[in-house]
Each structure stands twice: as C-alpha cells, then as structure tokens.
Amino acid sequence: MTVLTGTLTIISLSVIVLLHIVTAIFDNKISKILEYVNVTLHIALVLALLYDGVPIEEAPLAFMISLFVYTLTRAVSGYLRRGGGNDI
C-alpha cells in the first residue's frame, strides 16, 4: 500500500527533511536562514497537500515525518554538541 500518494507532497516533504538535516549539522548564519526557508516550506507542504487532493489521513503522516526528522536531528546534534538540557 502506498502511504504518500501526492507527487508534490513527496517533493515538498523530501526538501523539508533534507533541510532539517542540513540545519542540524551546520550551526551558522546560513543554517538559520535555511530554518526560515524550511518553515516557509511547511506552508508550501500544506498547499501541496491541498493541491494534490490527497486523502486527509496523509496530512498527519506528512507532518509526523517532518516532526520526527526535526526532533531526531536536534536530539542527535544535541547529543553530539552536549549543549545541556532544556526544561521541555
């Protein structure tokens, strides 16, 4: 069974995931700008979901993938940099 069916959705999500990884690896001005780009891309993802006319259940999946990659990359970069804990 295919779980993500919209082409635009898949492309947007792939770019988002890539940017999550890039911005987690590099800690400089460019990565900060890329974080903003990535946030904008999330809006594009919503539009892509709407344009693709995909089933509603794909929307949580797309966001969950993005959220998972974001938290994973930040947890890994935090572990490697040992920046200290946050109070959530």
């Binding site: 969950m64 572990y79 040992r82 946050n86």
Partner: peptide
C-alpha cells in the same frame, strides 16, 4: 508507520529535553 513514528518522535522529544538541541 504512524504508530512507529509517533512513538519514536516521543522518544526524540524526550532526548531533546535531556540533551538540548545543542544551540544557544
């Protein structure tokens, strides 16, 4: 996939709390 991702995300949120995200 959703179940696995949600549980893994939860673990990652927890790890973020422990390690921080390594940034100021």
């Amino acid at each position: 996939i959703m179940t696995a991702l949600s549980v893994l995300t939860l673990i990652m949120i927890d790890r973020m709390v422990v390690y921080g995200d390594g940034r100021d």
